[in-house]
Design a protein around this nucleic acid. Structure first.
Length: 754
DNA sequence: GCGGAGAAAGTTTTT
DNA sequence: CTTTCTCCGC
């Protein structure tokens, strides 16, 4: 067993570093994860530390899980007692144990963005200020900014007393904070802030963790914010002992400034932690030299950076292809065409491809392009799974069982499904609660003291009975049973099943997926407690859920979500000034910083590619149903032309080089016939003859009717829900088992009747 | 209290 | 172009 095998000199030096603070500047693809895991393995193996004396902080839960798996594979030992997780999950763990020192109950609820916004709306309504003048979304980011800068509402109000708008924001912020506390709830920012407060408030808690964590490792250090930085500092500064703090990061990949991340944390590390060591990992093992050199050339234009140059011993590989498109639909179609063509090769899979974009809203057009060519895909992010209405409704009941003082979740379900309790009745309950300073749920116990219409009165009384019954079940049942009981007893099941529209069916699908996720949770986690489950659900991001590695699909995701990932072929779509870099980075005050962050984002995007990189832009894009002309992104001009294949861009003829179709007719409408790959103009040296990839053959004269069962190449078995159009233009809406509902062109999709 | 129609707003990026 | 909000008639 040797966990140091295959490490280069620098990597080994980092992994074997002994005591004291160390900063590892690890460029994209330089084997950062390998160094982190080898280091931890070394600490445990050489008995410098027990697993429970190590704290490793990662950026996503997925990364945490992966790290644990890798280490236990390297050492063949149990690593369960090691603390590996995101800042948020580590902080929740501390808070569930110690938050009582701050006067909260440890069954606190974690509010996501939706809950947060609902609470802000509620506060705005109660204060009777104009929601048009104070848009909840804007208020939310203002509050977050203030909280992370540790500016209290009172402080902000007194500083800005003469400015009405600011003073009001301060007042909303103050009321929001009060309400959170009254609801026994924490927002995402609070998870970190309150954990830090715990450490500050009670020195015995701080001392306990300082003593416990002999070695601390932080990944993606360039994306830590003020609070995270303070947490690290607080935990790492041990008495009479060196700070065994090992941070890994890349200043060139700092892309979360908008969330409060401070690139200064990594730039000033050596000042903050005395006698620290610095190691640079600059050898890239991921990309071809063409891709790497192009990325280097772009990032060089940033002023605010430590400076480094990645190199590779890989060959030049293919040139980077610039794709010019008439509009976003053709962009999607052209990308889909390339994928369709490439996957005909025997050694190319759908999962070798990723399409990256700046904003989630771009995914729709891309999705449609892929569907039209029958290319299976998955979208990471966007509307989060646990954020969907149907899931949130079920969860709201469960949260209420655990934390009955939570008014936001009470309000979500008091009339879901409908119990004839309208806004007026809720207002009456609210008034009673305000007068008696109690929660809405408590108020319902004194129903006789509240004037309500008869129907509403009965509705509330039913609601209370249902919730009380479930509270009994909560203590007697496993989570799976409890959730089933919630689903059935509350009437949610009836409500969702009554909806037979397409959306309704997909909701039921999601609920089924939710149930299986719950079962998974029970099987995978030793801690079955409801608190642990609720935490799990609140903190799990979409990227964490991408466990379906076994299915062969193209991945669509934002560049932010793609951080840390790699793909053989990467498309970056929507490279237009105004979209990328975002228009919002050009007209605000610290413009230069923002444009540098966008450039780093571009750098992150390009360095995801191993072999092939396609940079795509559209000359016209529909936004809000309006045409917006597009000029290619300024970052494209920063790539030396020797790395680029512009041949398709410079084509002056009237024909679209990607499809052979005219520029002026929509290729979407004219290309419903089966794609014939010979039509695609390929400039690249990898245009070998297409081979038939696998044995999946489509039924040539497929004739389908509603109700037929079909087999799809990637999505498996499904049932036809509806059919539209005739012949080659026929579209089928198919409900796949566990894979959701998709609409496909019958003539193109890789499906056959079974 | 509820549902439908019509108006208005919205898109950076996420733990 | 979609999603969410608002108002009005039942």
């Amino acid at each position: 067993m040797n966990y140091l095998d295959g490490l280069n000199v620098k990597q080994k030096e980092a992994a074997l570093h002994d005591k004291g603070p160390i900063l590892v500047i690890a460029g994209a693809g330089t084997g950062k994860t390998k160094v982190l895991t080898s280091r931890i393995a070394n600490l445990i193996d050489t008995e410098k530390a027990n697993p429970y004396e190590i704290l490793a902080i990662t950026f996503t839960n997925k990364a945490a899980k992966e790290m644990k798996t890798r280490i236990s594979a390297l050492l063949h030992t149990e690593v369960d007692r090691m603390w590996v997780g995101t800042f948020h999950s580590i902080c929740v763990r501390i808070l569930r144990k110690y938050i009582s020192v701050l006067g909260y109950n440890n069954n606190f609820t974690i509010y996501d963005t939706t809950d947060q916004k609902n609470l802000i709306k509620k506060v705005i309504k109660e204060m009777a200020v104009d929601p048009k003048r104070f848009p909840p979304n804007q208020i939310k980011s203002n509050i977050s900014r203030l909280k992370n800068a540790e500016i209290s509402p009172d402080e902000y109000i007194s500083k800005n007393y003469s400015i009405y708008d600011r003073r009001t924001i301060g007042e909303i912020y103050g009321k929001y904070e009060k309400e959170l506390r009254r609801n026994n709830a924490l927002d995402f920012d609070d998870l970190l802030i309150k954990a830090l407060d715990c450490l500050r408030k009670d020195d015995s808690i701080a001392a306990y963790y300082r003593e416990k964590f002999k070695y601390i490792l932080v990944d993606e250090y360039q994306d830590t914010n003020n609070i995270q930085y303070q947490l690290v500092k607080y935990l790492a500064k041990r008495k009479n002992a060196p700070s065994n703090l090992f941070v890994v990061g890349d200043d060139d990949q700092s892309i979360y400034g908008w969330r409060g991340a401070d690139i200064g944390n990594i730039l000033n590390f050596e000042k903050d932690f005395e006698n620290s060591k610095l190691i640079r990992l600059e050898r890239n093992y991921r990309s071809t030299s063409t891709i790497l050199d192009a990325a280097n050339a772009v990032i060089k234009n940033n002023v605010n950076r430590k400076g480094k140059e990645l190199y590779t011993e890989d060959n030049k590989g293919n040139l980077i292809t610039i794709m010019k498109n008439n509009n976003e639909k053709e962009e999607a179609y052209n990308i889909a065409h390339v994928i369709s063509h490439e996957t005909n090769k025997s050694d190319v899979d759908y999962s070798d491809f990723a399409i990256l974009y700046r904003t989630n809203s771009q995914s729709r057009a891309l999705e449609e392009g892929l569907i039209k060519l029958g290319i299976p895909y998955k979208i990471v992010g966007g509307l989060k799974f646990y954020g969907r209405k149907e899931i949130k409704d079920i969860m709201a009941y469960i949260i209420l069982l655990q934390n009955p003082t939570d008014d936001i979740n009470f309000l979500r379900v008091i009339n879901t499904p409908t119990r004839k309790i309208g806004l007026k009745s809720v207002a009456s309950i609210q008034q009673y609660a305000d007068e008696n300073s109690c929660s809405l749920f408590e108020a319902c116990y004194n129903l006789d003291d509240i004037q309500l219409p008869k129907a509403a009165h009965n509705g509330v009384s039913d609601f209370v009975k249902i919730v009380e019954l479930l509270m009994v079940k909560k203590d007697a049942c496993e989570i799976t049973e409890l959730i089933n009981a919630v689903y059935e007893d509350t009437g949610l099941k009836k409500m969702f099943e009554a909806d037979e529209t397409i959306e309704g069916l997909s909701r039921i699908d999601n609920i089924e997926e939710f149930f299986s996720a719950v079962t998974d949770f029970e099987e995978m986690n030793a801690d079955h407690s409801l608190d642990s489950f609720l935490t799990h659900v609140s903190l799990l991001s979409d990227i964490d859920r991408t466990k379906e590695v076994d299915i062969d699909v193209v991945t669509l995701l934002t560049i932010h979500s793609a951080k840390g990932l790699e793909f053989s072929t990467v498309f970056i779509a929507g490279l237009e000034d105004g979209l990328f870099p975002s228009i919002r980075s050009s007209d605000e005050d610290n413009q230069d910083d923002k444009l540098e962050e966008e450039r780093r984002l571009f750098y992150v995007a390009t360095t995801r590619a191993k072999k092939n990189l396609y940079l795509s832009y559209a000359e016209d894009r529909m936004t809000f149903g309006r045409h917006t002309p597009g000029i290619k992104s300024r970052y494209l001009d920063e790539i030396p032309s020797e790395y680029l294949d512009n041949s398709l861009e410079e084509e002056k003829s009237n024909s679209n080089p990607w499809t052979g179709k005219s520029h002026f007719t929509s290729s979407l409408k004219t290309s419903y016939s089966k794609p014939t790959y010979s039509k695609i103009a390929y400039s690249k040296n990898n245009c070998t003859k297409a081979k038939v990839k696998d044995t999946f053959t489509r039924d040539e004269n497929i004739s389908l009717t509603v109700g037929d069962k079909v087999l799809h190449k990637a999505w498996g078995e499904g049932t036809i829900v509806s059919l539209n159009g005739e012949g080659e233009k026929q579209k089928a809406t198919i409900a796949f088992n566990n894979k959701g509902i998709k609409t496909l062109i019958t003539a193109l999709a890789p499906i056959k009747k079974i």
